Amino acid sequence: MKAWLTAHRPLVAGAMVLVLAGVAVVVFALLRPAPEPPVAAPSSTSASPTTTTTTTGSSTPPTTTAPTTTRTPPPAVPFPESLRGQDISRLPTDRKVVALTFDAGANSAGLPSILRTLADQRVLATFFLTGNFAQAEPGTVQAILAAGHRIGNHSMTHPYLTRLPDNEIAAELTRAEQVLMRTGADPRPLFRFPYGDRDARTIADVNAQGYVAVRWTVDTLGWQGTTGGNSPQRVVERTITALQPGEIVLMHIGSHPTDRSTLDADALPDVIAAVRARGYDFVTLDTLLGEGTTRR
């Protein structure tokens, strides 16, 4: 055997080389990692209809479509055609009723007393407010509303409207209305001219904006203050002297700029008592529109 291996050594060596090579091939095949699956192509399906997608590297962020809501105020209460072209100085009634009205454009110094008196006496009134006043004192406007009183438009800045062109008059009413609306007050369709300054043209402009112009039967002149020689008793006397069915009384909620008096607020309890003593009741200016009494 040894002799045979010695004689055939080259053949044996070759056979061993072949065997080892075969073993190596088998081992390599077993140890090689399995190939990865192919990468799927990008889908051609579009993005959600409420989302806009962007490509990589774009500086524009994704956007979504959000629903929008618009708040539209209710339509204004129309005023009777019979009131068009007028600056109403008295309620058109034979009833023994009086409308107390208060203008506000400066300050609200007398308002706490006025609201307290009106509440105690169960009387409602109408307050004409400027846009500037409402903008500066939104809480005051809300206090008037919370007490159940009626609010009217007194322009935005309290100018002499006869000195303004038509477009500026319209802007004065519109801006004031917008400010009042933001506080929760709807002044339509009641308007009072600042300083009582009006003519046929400006009344027509006010009507064109959907408002009826409301003046007064008597001005108490409480706004003149003690400096102007006025007093609470004089306020009462002027109101009662002009007393008649449908009387509209003009008062103010602010204090005198110099003497700081609040004569209208001080006189109000006696005004109400004197009017009632003569058999009269109280209403708001909504009576012009055929609406409710203000007795609570």
Results as ranks from 00 to 15, higher is better:
residue 155 S to Y: 15
residue 243 L to Y: 00
residue 214 V to Q: 06
residue 225 G to D: 11
residue 37 P to I: 02
residue 257 P to N: 10
residue 139 G to Q: 14
residue 284 T to C: 02
residue 190 L to Y: 03
residue 217 T to L: 01
residue 191 F to N: 05
residue 98 V to D: 00
residue 285 L to W: 00
residue 207 N to Q: 09
residue 237 E to M: 02
residue 39 V to F: 07
residue 253 I to F: 12
residue 49 P to V: 04
residue 204 A to F: 09
residue 271 V to G: 00
residue 29 A to P: 09
residue 220 T to Q: 01
residue 13 A to E: 03
residue 25 V to P: 06
residue 103 D to M: 11
residue 71 R to E: 04
residue 44 S to I: 15
residue 177 E to I: 01
residue 288 L to T: 04
residue 269 P to N: 10
residue 257 P to M: 13
residue 40 A to Y: 07
residue 196 G to S: 12
residue 179 V to N: 10
residue 57 G to V: 14
residue 267 A to T: 03
residue 112 P to W: 10
residue 196 G to E: 09
residue 129 L to F: 13
residue 211 Y to M: 06
residue 59 S to Y: 12
residue 86 Q to F: 03
residue 25 V to F: 02
residue 25 V to H: 03
residue 52 T to G: 06
residue 278 R to T: 02
residue 62 P to C: 03
residue 31 L to K: 14
residue 76 A to C: 07
residue 4 W to T: 08
residue 155 S to W: 13
residue 139 G to I: 10
residue 176 A to K: 06
residue 165 P to E: 14
residue 280 Y to N: 02
residue 52 T to W: 06
residue 54 T to C: 07
residue 156 M to H: 13
residue 83 L to Y: 05
residue 249 V to G: 01
residue 244 Q to K: 01
residue 201 R to V: 06
residue 26 V to Y: 06
residue 25 V to D: 03
residue 112 P to E: 14
residue 235 V to W: 02
residue 100 L to W: 01
residue 225 G to K: 14
residue 171 A to Y: 15
residue 1 M to A: 07
residue 8 H to Y: 02
residue 176 A to D: 14
residue 246 G to W: 00
residue 262 T to S: 13
residue 156 M to S: 14
residue 203 I to A: 05
residue 208 A to Q: 08
residue 124 L to Q: 06
residue 194 P to D: 12
residue 163 R to Y: 12
residue 286 D to Q: 01
residue 260 R to C: 07
residue 199 D to K: 14
residue 119 A to T: 11
residue 5 L to M: 03
residue 87 D to C: 08
residue 139 G to C: 15
residue 11 L to H: 06
residue 244 Q to F: 00
residue 92 P to K: 02
residue 248 I to E: 01
residue 293 T to I: 03
residue 86 Q to P: 04
residue 258 T to F: 14
residue 222 G to S: 05
residue 260 R to M: 09
residue 74 P to C: 01
residue 162 T to D: 15
residue 253 I to S: 15
residue 203 I to Y: 07
residue 204 A to K: 10
residue 51 T to A: 05
residue 94 D to P: 13
residue 294 T to H: 02
residue 188 R to V: 00
residue 78 P to W: 11
residue 266 D to L: 12
residue 230 N to Q: 13
residue 54 T to L: 09
residue 151 I to Y: 13
residue 265 A to L: 13
residue 52 T to V: 09
residue 115 L to D: 11
residue 130 T to P: 10
residue 82 S to P: 08
residue 130 T to S: 15
residue 98 V to S: 00
residue 111 L to V: 13
residue 79 F to M: 03
residue 219 D to F: 01
